[in-house]
Amino acid sequence: MSNSALPPDDPGRDLVQVRPDGPGLVHLAIAGGTYTVLVSGDQTAGRYCLIDMRVPPGGGPPPHRHDFEEMFTVLDGAVEFTFRGTPVVARAGETVNIPANAPHFFRNRSDQPARLLCMCTPAGQDEYFRRVGDQVDGPDSPPPPLSAEEQDERGQRAARLAGEYRTELLVP
């Protein structure tokens, strides 16, 4: 008999080990970059998701906010995060945490690609990205060429689904 306040181990959950270029991962063209879902909410019982973001010069999402925590670790390059209207640059090796509900966005303002790890807790952003992005072959795949109409459709889809994923896009 245990006196632990912790629930028992759940043997139905497995260890998750991935490589960013490993088989079976979902790679998505989003916001000008390629995002790879490394660990999905399905694999963590919804507790969090982990996304590898490769962001080209000029890439990044529009201003937005959501009711979940989002943490970024810059692996390569530098990215400018704008948090509540104030920009701050994060460089390789640095971590930025965005509190729930705070308006923010990021942009790669350099002339070099950047790479970030993004953890969202709880999960859900991974599923949102799957629904609004275009699947590509691998982490270094360029986004598909889209016509102006296709780009507009992606933006409308992102806006239409945002509320379902506890997100508000802050664009006119």
Score class of each variant (00 low, 15 high):
residue 1 M to E: 04
residue 1 M to G: 11
residue 1 M to Q: 07
residue 2 S to Y: 09
residue 2 S to V: 09
residue 2 S to L: 06
residue 3 N to H: 05
residue 3 N to Y: 08
residue 3 N to W: 02
residue 3 N to P: 03
residue 3 N to V: 06
residue 3 N to I: 01
residue 4 S to C: 04
residue 4 S to A: 14
residue 5 A to N: 15
residue 5 A to W: 11
residue 6 L to R: 00
residue 7 P to Q: 06
residue 8 P to L: 12
residue 8 P to E: 01
residue 9 D to A: 15
residue 10 D to I: 03
residue 10 D to L: 07
residue 10 D to G: 03
residue 11 P to T: 12
residue 11 P to L: 13
residue 12 G to N: 15
residue 13 R to E: 08
residue 15 L to C: 12
residue 15 L to V: 10
residue 16 V to M: 10
residue 17 Q to R: 07
residue 17 Q to P: 04
residue 17 Q to F: 11
residue 18 V to W: 01
residue 18 V to I: 02
residue 18 V to N: 00
residue 20 P to M: 05
residue 20 P to I: 11
residue 20 P to N: 13
residue 21 D to H: 08
residue 22 G to H: 06
residue 22 G to S: 04
residue 22 G to V: 00
residue 23 P to I: 05
residue 23 P to R: 14
residue 23 P to A: 14
residue 24 G to A: 14
residue 24 G to S: 13
residue 25 L to R: 09
residue 26 V to T: 15
residue 26 V to S: 13
residue 28 L to N: 06
residue 28 L to R: 04
residue 29 A to C: 04
residue 29 A to G: 08
residue 30 I to D: 02
residue 30 I to A: 07
residue 31 A to H: 10
residue 31 A to E: 12
residue 32 G to C: 00
residue 32 G to F: 01
residue 33 G to I: 08
residue 33 G to D: 12
residue 33 G to L: 05
residue 35 Y to D: 10
residue 35 Y to P: 02
residue 36 T to P: 15
residue 36 T to Q: 14
residue 36 T to A: 15
residue 36 T to E: 15
residue 37 V to W: 00
residue 37 V to L: 13
residue 38 L to H: 06
residue 38 L to W: 11
residue 39 V to T: 06
residue 39 V to K: 10
residue 40 S to N: 07
residue 40 S to H: 05
residue 41 G to K: 04
residue 42 D to G: 12
residue 42 D to N: 04
residue 42 D to T: 07
residue 42 D to C: 01
residue 43 Q to W: 00
residue 43 Q to F: 05
residue 43 Q to P: 02
residue 43 Q to E: 13
residue 43 Q to I: 03
residue 44 T to E: 09
residue 44 T to R: 08
residue 45 A to P: 06
residue 45 A to N: 10
residue 45 A to R: 12
residue 46 G to M: 02
residue 46 G to C: 11
residue 46 G to R: 09
residue 46 G to I: 04
residue 47 R to T: 14
residue 47 R to K: 15
residue 47 R to E: 14
residue 48 Y to P: 06
residue 48 Y to N: 06
residue 48 Y to D: 02
residue 49 C to E: 08
residue 49 C to T: 12
residue 50 L to Q: 10
residue 50 L to T: 12
residue 51 I to A: 00
residue 51 I to H: 00
residue 52 D to K: 01
residue 52 D to I: 07
residue 52 D to W: 14
residue 53 M to A: 05
residue 54 R to Q: 09
residue 54 R to D: 03
residue 54 R to W: 09
residue 56 P to H: 10
residue 57 P to K: 10
residue 57 P to N: 09
residue 57 P to S: 10
residue 58 G to H: 01
residue 58 G to N: 05
residue 58 G to C: 01
residue 59 G to Y: 03
residue 59 G to E: 06
residue 60 G to A: 09
residue 60 G to Y: 08
residue 61 P to V: 13
residue 61 P to S: 13
residue 63 P to W: 03
residue 63 P to C: 00
residue 63 P to N: 06
residue 63 P to Y: 11
residue 64 H to Y: 06
residue 64 H to E: 13
residue 65 R to L: 14
residue 66 H to L: 01
residue 66 H to S: 00
residue 66 H to R: 07
residue 67 D to N: 14
residue 67 D to I: 11
residue 68 F to N: 02
residue 69 E to P: 04
residue 69 E to F: 05
residue 69 E to I: 04
